[in-house]
Design a protein around this nucleic acid. Structure first.
Lengths: 250, 250
DNA sequence: CGGGCCCTTGAATTCTCTCAAACAATGTGG
DNA sequence: CCACATTGTTTGAGAGAATTCAAGGGCCCG
C-alpha cells in the first residue's frame, strides 16, 4: 500500500474529481471535512490483484476512485460466483467492518485507485456525522436491492434473459456515472468473468453472447461494449432500471 | 392495521419476550426507551397476506415478532423468486425507507405479528441514537451477506446442493433464534415456496427433496422439518454457517 | 360433496454442461 | 523481433440436468 502525507495525495477529498458526477449528492463543507479526515490513504493496485480476500479480517474500508473490480465468492472446489461489479464511486468493505470476517473477495479487473479509510473510525462517523451514517446505510440498502435483482435473474431468467439483463445493468450503472459515450462503454470483462457472473458455463456464455451479437443487439470488441438495440435488450431482459436517485459518495 | 394505545400493546418493548433470545445483544435502558418511542403500533396479519408490495411506497418499517414470512420479486410474466425468509427478530422495510419505492414484496407464510415503526422517525434515530443507527447498518450488511451466499447458491450449486444449503440455512437461522427442538423445526413452507426460493421447477424440487428424504438426510411432514443427517447435508451443500455473532434486535 | 391446492410420478423435450479441439490475441523471454 | 506460453474465444458433438406436459391421488375447507 502507498500511504503518503495528506498534502501529497493525488486526490484530496475537497477536490476529488469524482464529486462532480451528477449522480452524487452534494456534501456540506462539514461532511466533506469529515470524509477528508476519515481518509487515511490511497491504494493503487494493478489488474488481477486480490484487494480483499474471503476469510480475512481487513482493517480498511475503500472507495473506488478509478478502475473496475468485482466482488465474488468461491466454493471450496473452486466454483466462483461473481456477485457484483465495482466501479468508481462504489464503497467496499463495510461487511468486514461490521462482521467478524470477510465472506467474499474483491479483485481488480483493471488497474484501480482506491481511497482508504480506517475501519476503527467508522464508529466515530456514527457518533458525530448522522448524515454520513445515514449514507452508509443507504449504500448498504442499495447494494441489497442490486443483489435482490441479481437473485431474481439467476433464479428465474433464462440464459439469454440473464445475459441481456447483465449487460443492460452494467451499462446503466456506468451511464449514470457518466462513463459511457453514446451506446458504448469500456468493457474490461472477459467471457470467463461473464460466465461466473451469469452462473453459466463458459461455452454457453459464449454462445449466448454471440447470439445477441449476431442479432445485432450488442457488439463486443476492443474492450468495449456497444448496445446496438437497447429497447430489444430491455424487452428480452424484462428489466427497467430503478428510479434515478442521488447517491452519496463517501 | 390494528394500532392501539401504547398501554394496551400486547408486547411493550420493555418486556418484549423476544429480547431474551440469546442471539440478540442486550440493549441499554436508553436504547430501549428510544425503541419503545419509535414503535407506533402492532400489526397482525394472517397467512398469505401481502404485507408490502413491489412498487408501493410504505410509510412503515417492521420488526417480526412472531410467524414466518418471505421477501420476493416478480417478473412481469409471473415468475417469482423468493429472496429471503423472515422470522421473528427480522427487520423489514428499510429499503422502502431509503429508496423511492419498494423493489420487492413481502408475504406472510403463517400468521404474523409485526411491530410497526414510523419511517419518518428513522432520521431521528440517526441523529440521536448512533448505536442504533449502527445496528440498522449492521442488519443491512448482514442481509447483504445472506444474499451473497444465496447468489453463490443459485449461480454455482447444483439442484441437490442448493436444496441441502437452503434447508441447512433455514434450520440454522431458526436454531440460533431458539426455535428448534433437537433436529426439528416448524416448516410452514410448501414445495412451491421451496421451488421459487431454489430457482427450480416445482417438479424438480419435488424430486430432489424426495431424494434427500429417501436417503434419510431429511424428513419433512406435519409442517415440520427434521434434519436427520446434518453432517451429510453440510457435505453436500459445501456450506458452513458464518461465525456466531450477537445481533441487534430493534 | 366439490373445488382448490399440494404432492407425486412418468415421459418427452429443451436447455445447459462437459469434453475436445482449434484458432486468436496477448505477453514474455531470449 | 521472433518463438513460445498463456489466456481468451469459438465451434462441434454427446451427455447430463432440469423443464414442461400430463395425469392421478391426497387433503383440507366451504
Amino acid at each position: 500500500m502507498s500511504t503518503v502525507a495528506p498534502a501529497a495525495w493525488r486526490f484530496p477529498c475537497q477536490k476529488c474529481p469524482l464529486r462532480s458526477i451528477a449522480e452524487f449528492r452534494e456534501f456540506s463543507p462539514s461532511e466533506l471535512e469529515f470524509v477528508a479526515s476519515f481518509k487515511t490513504g490511497e491504494l493503487t493496485v494493478e489488474a488481477g490483484t486480490t484487494v480483499i480476500s474471503q476469510g480475512s479480517r481487513t482493517a480498511h474500508l475503500y472507495t473506488v476512485l478509478s478502475g473496475w473490480g468485482f466482488r465474488y465468492k468461491l466454493l471450496d472446489d473452486g466454483r466462483r460466483q461473481i456477485l457484483t461489479f465495482l466501479l468508481p464511486g462504489d464503497f467496499i468493505g463495510l461487511q468486514a467492518s461490521l462482521m467478524t470476517e470477510m465472506q467474499h473477495s474483491v479483485e481488480a479487473l483493471t488497474g484501480m485507485l482506491l481511497c482508504v479509510f480506517e475501519r476503527e473510525r467508522l464508529w466515530q462517523l456514527y457518533e458525530t456525522q448522522p448524515s454520513l451514517a445515514f449514507d452508509v446505510t443507504w449504500l448498504a440498502a442499495r447494494e441489497e436491492q442490486t443483489l435482490d435483482e441479481h437473485l431474481l435473474s439467476l433464479g428465474q431468467r433464462t440464459a439469454e434473459e440473464r445475459a441481456a439483463y447483465l449487460l443492460l445493468f452494467l451499462f446503466h450503472r456506468a451511464e449514470i456515472r457518466g462513463m459511457t459515450k453514446g451506446n458504448t462503454v469500456a468493457f474490461p470483462f472477459t467471457q470467463p468473468h461473464m460466465a461466473d457472473a451469469l452462473g453459466l458455463s463458459l461455452v454457453h456464455t459464449n454462445r449466448i453472447l454471440n447470439q445477441l451479437a449476431r442479432r445485432k443487439f450488442i457488439a463486443i470488441g476492443q474492450r468495449q461494449l456497444e448496445l446496438r438495440n437497447r429497447s430489444k435488450l430491455t424487452e428480452i431482459a424484462r428489466w427497467e432500471p430503478p428510479p434515478a436517485q442521488l447517491r452519496p459518495f463517501i
